[in-house]
Write a protein that binds this DNA or RNA. Structure first.
Length: 203
DNA sequence: CGAGCGATTCGC
DNA sequence: CGAATCGCTCGG
């Protein structure tokens, strides 16, 4: 059995959102929803910074009912509905009133594969979680999971590290996906993924 | 109060 | 390449 230790809230507060996006690669997501547990490993992330990044929903420090959770202290979830169809899962970072978040774009399934397949109605392991909308579906993430504390292993969704899980990941840094509307900020290389990992989106 | 628009995915 | 599909945002 995997031995997973919750990341402390301090993990989400130290450094800027771009650094934290990189450090989130290889970390573990546990969901416990409808009495079903899934465990997966983050393989692709993107950083969003509401103070200066036109791609961020909270730009320029725009506080609305939807973005409000991004203004809270780091270590909480930000889940929103995209295109009226898919939920996207983000991790809020940094201090209160610094509206930053990391979009989780792809994970590698580790446990609960059967549950993920049932939720997604497919039996293709690669296509189960290799996109932000896909992984939300597989892990059981909906708007109900907005504003959840991710540093508490009693939460229905939380993040951890695998004990003895070696790091030394080869990381690729590139431009973000689907943010052409952000003008010059679309050029920022704020997308990170684990090199050669088969579960990364848009191979 | 309503028009317009997505940090996407899937199927044709 | 276009449809699906609806909450959110902003303008009037």
């Amino acid at each position: 059995m995997l031995n997973i230790k919750a990341l402390p809230q301090s993990f989400y507060l130290e450094g800027d959102v771009v650094d934290i996006s990189k450090k989130l690669l290889g970390k573990i997501i546990v969901t416990d929803i409808d009495a079903e547990t899934t465990i997966s490993r983050i393989v692709e992330t993107e950083a969003y910074n509401g103070s200066m990044d036109k791609a961020c929903h909270a730009y320029p420090n725009r506080k609305t009912p939807r973005t409000e959770v991004m203004f809270k202290e780091g270590g909480r979830s930000y889940v929103y509905l995209c295109y009226g169809i898919h939920y996207l899962f983000n991790i809020v970072t940094n201090k209160e009133n610094e509206p930053n978040a990391v979009l989780i774009r792809a994970v590698e399934p580790l446990r609960g594969l059967d549950i993920m397949e049932n939720r997604r109605k497919i039996h293709n392991r690669i296509n189960l979680t290799n996109g932000p909308g896909k992984l939300a579906g597989a892990l059981g993430i909906t708007r109900n999971l907005n504003d959840i504390t991710l540093y508490d292993s009693n939460s229905s969704i939380w993040l951890g590290v695998e004990e003895g899980g070696g790091q030394d990941l080869e990381i690729i840094q590139t431009t973000r996906v689907g943010v052409d509307y952000a003008e010059e900020d679309a050029l920022l290389c704020w997308r990170f993924y684990i090199k050669d990992n088969p579960y990364v989106s848009r191979k």
